[in-house]
Simulated scan of single mutants.
Amino acid sequence: MTPDPGTAASDTDPAELALARLYGEPLFALPQDLYIPPEALAVYLDAFEGPLDLLLYLIRRQNFNILDIPMAEVTRQYLAYVDQLREHHLELAAEYLLMAAMLIEIKSRMLLPPRQVAADQEAADPRAELVRRLLEYERIKLGALKIDQLPLVGRDLLAAAVHIEQALEPRLPDVSPIDLRNAWADVLQRAKLTQRHHIGREALSVREHMTLVLRALQGRRFVEFHELFDATRGVPVLVVTFIAMLELARERLLEITQAEAFAPIYVRLTYTPS
C-alpha cells in the first residue's frame, strides 16, 4: 500500500525544516535586516600588521607569483579593503592609502611604454622595488613566527625554583696569615731544640718537597700542620718544605684550615687522588 504524500508531509516536524534557531525559536528564512556592526570589520582589518601584510596576504591567498604580480587584480582587491577601512576608521587608513597610491603608480607605469635603455641592458620592472619589500617583509615575518614558537618562560614553561639544603659538613674558616706565621714560628722553635750543627751543602728542590708533601697527605683526611715538617733535618729543609706548602696552596692543590681561632691548624688535599 502506497502512503499518502500529504500524510507523510504532515508527519514531519516543522522544526526540522528550520534553517537555525534564535533564542530557541526556529527560523525558516534568513532575516532581511541583519545588522553587522562596523567594529566587526575593524577586528578583521586590525589582524594585519600594516599595508605590506595585507598585500602579502592577497598575493599568497590566490597563489600569485610574487615575482610577477598581476598589478590590476591585486590593486583592485587592495582598494576594496582600503575603502572598507576608510569608511569606518579613517584614522587607521593613512598608511594603507599610501600603499594604495604606490600600487596605482606602479600600475600606471606598466601601462606606459618602457624607457629607452642600452642594447645590453634590460628595462627596469616598475614592480621590482615592491617585490623586494614584500620578500624582505615575508622573511622577517617568518623569522618572527619561528622565534614566537620557541618555548617562552612564563608562557610555555615555568622556571623551577628548588631549595637546595646546604651541606651538613660545616665549612672550616680560612686560616689568617698571622696564625700561619705563629705556627711556622713554633715549628722553627722546635727545630732549634733538636738541630745538629754540621757544615755541608745540600741541594734542595721545592718541586721535590711539593711531591713529598702531597705524598704525606694522600690517604689522610686532615694532617696537623707541624706533622709535615721533619725538625731533625735542619732549618733549610724546613724552609723549603714551608715554601713547597705555600706553592701547593697557591696552586689550590691543598687547603689550610682551622676550626676556630687559636685552634690547631690542619692541612688537607683539595682533590681526591685517583
Results as ranks from 00 to 15, higher is better:
100 A>D: 07
101 A>W: 01
102 M>N: 12
104 I>E: 14
105 E>S: 13
105 E>V: 09
106 I>C: 02
107 K>C: 01
108 S>Q: 14
108 S>G: 13
108 S>V: 09
109 R>V: 12
109 R>N: 11
109 R>A: 12
110 M>C: 07
110 M>D: 01
110 M>V: 00
110 M>F: 01
111 L>G: 06
112 L>S: 04
112 L>N: 04
113 P>I: 01
113 P>H: 00
113 P>R: 05
114 P>D: 08
115 R>G: 15
117 V>W: 03
117 V>I: 13
118 A>P: 00
118 A>E: 05
119 A>K: 12
119 A>Q: 11
120 D>K: 07
120 D>F: 09
121 Q>V: 10
121 Q>T: 06
121 Q>I: 03
122 E>A: 14
122 E>D: 10
124 A>Q: 07
125 D>R: 11
126 P>S: 02
126 P>R: 04
126 P>A: 03
127 R>N: 01
127 R>I: 02
128 A>Q: 13
128 A>Y: 08
129 E>F: 12
130 L>A: 08
130 L>R: 05
130 L>N: 09
130 L>P: 05
130 L>W: 03
131 V>E: 07
131 V>N: 05
131 V>R: 14
131 V>L: 07
131 V>T: 14
131 V>D: 01
132 R>Q: 12
132 R>T: 11
133 R>S: 11
134 L>K: 05
135 L>I: 15
135 L>D: 07
135 L>S: 06
136 E>W: 01
136 E>T: 13
136 E>Q: 13
138 E>T: 06
138 E>V: 04
139 R>K: 12
139 R>E: 15
140 I>C: 07
140 I>Q: 14
141 K>G: 01
142 L>W: 02
142 L>F: 05
142 L>D: 11
143 G>Q: 15
143 G>D: 13
146 K>H: 03
146 K>S: 04
146 K>V: 01
146 K>T: 00
146 K>R: 13
147 I>C: 00
147 I>W: 01
148 D>A: 15
148 D>W: 02
149 Q>K: 14
150 L>K: 14
152 L>R: 15
152 L>K: 15
152 L>H: 15
152 L>E: 15
152 L>M: 14
154 G>M: 06
155 R>C: 01
155 R>L: 10
155 R>A: 12
156 D>Y: 02
156 D>N: 15
156 D>R: 11
157 L>R: 13
157 L>V: 13
158 L>T: 11
158 L>Q: 13
159 A>F: 09
161 A>W: 03
161 A>C: 06
161 A>G: 03
162 V>K: 08
163 H>W: 06
164 I>E: 13
165 E>N: 05
166 Q>S: 10
166 Q>P: 10
167 A>M: 04
167 A>V: 05
168 L>E: 12
168 L>T: 11
